[in-house]
Design a protein around this nucleic acid. Structure first.
Lengths: 251, 251
DNA sequence: AGTACATTGCGTCATAATAACACATTAAGC
DNA sequence: GCTTAATGTGTTATTATGACGCAATGTACT
């Protein structure tokens, strides 16, 4: 297998790809980074093929780096999708021709692909979405307003969100999605958005502070309507500790 | 790609396999079903390749059916393993020769395989481990006494156990691992074995009964030392409901 | 037969976590 | 200055949890 569209000669793992669900948080909305190529009429998740000499986890890190410019951020494999019909009629000859891939070379592209799904949590404001080609569109989209996606990417996205929702009960979330300084109401909005559920202000504060991962700053948010909320930062050391050991022990 | 060892002509998905971690519970031990082929000196997880016209989830169901004779049991995908070096030097020429696979045909076998891990929970006593060839060994092994495994199968097994351990906090477990009628101490031993932790008898009873998935029978276990414990069954309907909705809502 | 012993069944109590709610405080805008 | 819509802090009742005590049961041994 040979990639004819890139400069470097790259041999790919046959029948395998990765897809990344990159979450950001802005304007009290949970956003997802989506891509639209000119030869496609639908949007898709950022992803790619896996060179035969690259670990699949590294491939996810690479895609994330390319698309967001960021490294060392929260990234987790959550599921692998391998239905026989998942990419039926997707890499047809029209697409192959557009990508300038010889039909014989691209034969494996027309067969079933198995894709490994990863989800990432990034700081919206620090991220500069990178297009890989001029004609390509890459945008943050509110997760409630995701347009039609190619293949089974909607299913992948849904599964990522469900996974994230479940993870909220096991690990702290926020460090990767919020700016360095943030307010409790902002953090609560994040939780409410992910859970798609209203939470009680006062109970949320108590529960979140009891975890012991927040530092209350001697500073208030400025230029806001109504009472100015206090600013907080995460105590990275304690945050990582809880991230490692989990929130609830259950049994 | 062509399988030369089976009767039927089967074309496989290149560079892909699945592996199943099949858990059983017997003699107060958590057991894992392992396989040893004569041309290998180590044990391995039951698994296999995926025909190009088979969903990967179906492949896992098929392997499980072949190995245990059972269907409709608890089976869950938990992770995909794709390090570049994970099957280095495994399908070397010696193995290819043994499997009577032409070296040219088997070329893709010597390259990196990505494997999708599934774990299953089965009733030990209802399971009859099936060997696929005469010379093959298939045995239940105490998870604490697992011998050296091929490739990264130890890593896969460990990850499955960690996943199962985490799932204990989210879903009820036991229906698939215990016989129809069981005692609370047996169920507790199961939990303790999975968690590798001692639990308080009385608190366990209270917590497990509060879930509301148990039916207390008017029957006691016979032929046991000391006081005969009461027998229980799972209330399948309520069990499935909790399985679907989860145990703790967290937020 | 009687007793020791290990295990089960049921209960108590102090403490912690949770849900529901009241009220004072702050800053913007009229 | 008053209204409004947020935030910050506290209260209470209920429920869940962790750490125990003690009686009941059935086996094994003398």
């Amino acid at each position: 297998m040979r990639n004819t569209t890139l400069e470097k000669y790259v041999e790919y793992q046959p029948g395998l790809s990765i897809d990344c669900v990159i979450f950001g948080f802005h304007d009290n909305q949970l956003k997802v980074l989506l891509i639209k190529t000119p030869y496609e009429n639908k949007w898709s998740l950022p992803g790619g093929f896996v060179p035969i000499d690259e670990d699949i986890d590294d491939a996810a890190v690479r895609v994330l780096k390319i698309r967001t410019g960021m490294e060392g951020i929260f990234l987790r494999q959550f599921a692998t999708f391998g239905k026989v019909k998942r990419n039926d009629n997707h890499f047809g000859n029209a697409v192959l021709d557009h990508l300038k891939i010889p039909r014989e070379t691209g034969k494996w592209l027309s067969q079933r692909f198995v894709t490994v799904g990863y989800y990432a949590l990034v700081d919206f404001l620090q991220t500069v979405p990178q297009q890989s080609k001029k004609e390509e569109l890459i945008e943050w989209v509110d997760h409630k307003e995701v347009p039609e996606l190619i293949l089974d990417h909607k299913e992948i996205l849904d599964k990522a969100l469900i996974t994230l929702r479940n993870e909220l009960n096991l690990i702290p979330v926020g460090y990767n999605l919020l700016p360095e300084k943030f307010t409790i109401p902002e953090l609560q909005k994040l939780y409410e958005t992910i859970l798609d559920k209203k939470l009680d202000r006062r109970n949320f504060l108590r529960k979140i502070t009891n975890i012991g991962i927040l530092n209350k700053l001697d500073e208030k948010k400025s230029n806001v309507a109504h009472k100015a909320p206090n600013l907080y930062t995460f105590d990275k050391e304690k945050y990582d500790e809880v991230l490692k050991n989990g929130l609830n022990q259950g049994w």
